[in-house]
Design a protein around this nucleic acid. Structure first.
Lengths: 306, 306
DNA sequence: AGGGAAAATGGTAGCGCTGTCATTTTGTCT
DNA sequence: AGACAAAATGACAGCGCTACCATTTTCCCT
């Protein structure tokens, strides 16, 4: 009885809206969705909300969705593919008009559901791999390569790696792969690697990981971290133990978090356009265009730690 | 035709589920919700996803919701009361089984809608004020008071404040109020205050804010920051400019973010049990008990910066 | 084997809207 | 004023389920 379009006179409309406001009546969108067979819900499945990366992407997504009157339904998979599958199924049961997921790696069933559900799918953050429908991200492998090239160009040759569990964080694994490929191409390899199993505070993982690595190995001149959280932890370790950065040790991260340019020495890292990525993804989702792959690229930020 | 409870034989059930899996059929929960008049959606309205505070609370909430088969529908208000009102209305139109909002301050219409919508309401983060139904948080004013008492007990007397816009962040304003009250009770006042209008990076606000304050005032011996992000920024400023902490200047924050105990010197701050807060809130929401106020308290963390 | 309770199955109204079509009212032009 | 188009209103089926009741089948005990 309370629809905007078509056939309601303006005069009547005003009165009804007024009455509705008085009674604080809220229309039932569940019924509306069922009747119109098209919902104003958009599903979103992300791996975590640990650091600010995902929230920033979501901010971009949300800005677009909200402007278009859509409501996000969110699930957090904790980097667990089976959990992701379950979340996708659960979210799909709300018959969203579209769904955004992080990354390109999913279980077979999850892919099947996403392909067969009849709504647009956006995969965010990564472009290295086979997408389902729309893909918006930047190349993780290329980011790793560029990082390595940067360090080599600055004559670092004794490079260590400090990361978290790359079986869990597939994108970090791809970066590592790209980095290592460049090392190999130059007849080099990581001097040593430290994988921290933690999923909790990555800053802590970086701190602890670097401490362990330095205890094992001397002669390292640069560390590649799986991301800025870890790099930040490593930087804090250096500050506390009077390791001069970058003279004694260079540090390189990934993400380009805001905080990395506010530390006493800004960290060298790779900045990804996260908010833009979210906006582009959401816009493509709503636009109804063809399947596409958008590489939003990244920017190598030369800080003071290399 | 595909419901769990009641009257379907086990044998038949298996076959149907198998067929459903093959066709990757996903039940339509929209229809189910409409028919049963009870949804498995929970609304959540938060002011931002800037730092990790809100995501941590959400993680706690989400853990409970997911275990109970509920799906969160999220809105982000950007600290804007009118936007919050609109989001509440929008979310309510999905007929959630409950709704969680941040803080106790809302527009009159928002309060009216929350009171009249017929579902349980949880207000999170703060307990200083009049709640609608269930309130789970900790006293902001008391946190401010304890912070001031701590600094005074350590003989700091020339205290400055660096914060962001407290008209926007009401809880930060309450902490400031509590802090100032203790100063007054001891015949003191802030030497100077710096309010940074930024809503972007709070770390930057802290850095810039402290720099400005120190430019105006000499003789300050301690700074109270509106939260840890700001305090972190201030700490970075000190590190860069060789201001010895806490000898030259003591720093105190709020939140107890993980990162504050990983900096070269752990920051003094007040830690709030955010994940627990989220869990408690979600549990109370689902439990169906009476209206309550739960003060989850906080812990004053004496770091190395006071 | 017969009787009664329990379990399984089948059938159907209706949740609160939307889309559509039939009908009525209003407006406009000659 | 009459004729016609346009706008407004009214009426109603149906979206895909769930809740509920009626019926049928199965099971168990005497």
């Amino acid at each position: 009885m309370l629809r905007n379009q078509g056939s309601v006179s303006e005069s009547a409309r005003g009165k009804i809206l007024e009455a509705a406001a008085d009674l604080n009546y809220v229309p039932n969108r569940i019924a509306g969705t069922l009747a119109s067979m098209s919902s104003k819900l958009i599903g979103i499945v992300v791996p975590s909300v640990g650091n600010t990366v995902v929230p920033e992407v979501l901010a971009g997504v949300n800005a677009v969705l909200e402007a278009a009157g859509f409501q996000p339904v969110i699930g957090v998979s904790n980097y667990d593919a089976l959990r992701e599958e379950a979340l996708i199924e659960s979210i799909l049961s709300w018959r969203p008009s579209g769904i955004l997921v992080a990354g390109l790696e999913h279980t077979d069933r999850a892919r099947a559901m996403l392909k067969g559900c009849g709504v647009r799918v956006v995969e965010l953050l990564d472009v290295d791999g086979e997408g389902i429908d729309i893909v918006v991200g930047s190349s993780q492998r290329m980011a790793g390569r560029k990082s390595a090239e940067h360090l080599l160009a600055h004559n670092y040759r004794h490079i260590g790696y400090v990361g978290h569990d790359i079986r869990v964080d597939i994108r970090a694994g791809k970066r590592l792969e790209g980095f290592r490929a460049v090392l190999h191409e130059n007849g080099l390899n990581f001097v040593d690697q430290e994988f921290h199993p933690s999923m909790a505070s990555s800053v802590e993982a970086g701190r602890v990981g670097l401490a362990r690595l330095l205890k094992r190995q001397s002669g390292l001149d640069a560390i590649y971290f799986s991301n800025d959280d870890l790099a930040l932890g490593g930087y804090f370790h250096c500050l506390e133990h009077d390791i001069s950065v970058p003279r004694d040790l260079a540090l390189f991260g990934y993400n380009g978090l805001e905080i990395t340019r506010l530390t006493p020495q800004p960290l060298s890292t790779i900045r990804t356009p996260r908010i833009a990525m979210g906006k582009v993804g959401a816009n493509l989702l709503l636009s109804g265009g063809p399947s596409t792959i958008v590489d939003v690229g990244f920017e190598l930020v030369v800080g003071a730690t290399t």
